[in-house]
Amino acid sequence: MLDAPLLKVRQLEAFYGDFQALYGLDLELKTGQVVAIVGANGAGKSTLLNSIAGLMATRPEAIELAGERIGGKAPYQIVAQGIALVPEGRRLFPSLSVEENLVIGGHMKRPGPWKLARIYELFPTLAERRHHPATALSGGQQQMVAIGRALMSNPRVLLCDELSLGLAPIVVRDIYAHLRAIIADGVAAIIVEQDIQQALKIAGHLYCMLEGRIVLHGAARSLTRESIAAAYFGV
């Protein structure tokens, strides 16, 4: 049973009104594993993460966490089960301070290693600016708050949507260095990234999406640059 996947996505579909965004997606994530999802804009990467986090309607059996069906549950129930999302564009609460943003991430009070002190240990700059409004921080610092906010719920699965979006390359490297430290702690992660290089560096397994479908997947090591590029652009 040790090898049983922690998170299992089976035949997942998603719709925006009449528009179908995902077509029968399958995906697996094992404990401690990092999976990267790459693909062009509009491929459905964010929709996939939002579906797992409960922001999109899904069939109950489409998503299983540790053998339990969680598809179609409300986002707040899914957080309680141990899935946290770092949303695209960070989406901090502007009227909350840095510290309040972190504290509200721990609203569910799930037991685990991540407490406010530990977040500040990981990101010392946040401790210095704890009483500032969250949106007064730089982009990179805001991303740290967003990651810290997700960690405060002590997730088993961390979903990261485009961490590098709008950040300078040096800041992106720093963020990913921190992420590596977090993952070393044992949390499993699904990372959506447009930057394939960044994704390949951190993930053991890669899924490539095109127009709502998974067109290629495998161990990061086994995939050639050409095959990924072909899948990415659908040629």
Partner: peptide
């Protein structure tokens, strides 16, 4: 804090475990 978070961004507030 929950009131303010929901007011700022109801969609994201749910991801914090707020109903």
């Amino acid at each position: 804090r929950s009131f303010r978070a929901v007011s700022d961004d109801p969609r994201i507030a749910q991801l914090m475990g707020l109903n």
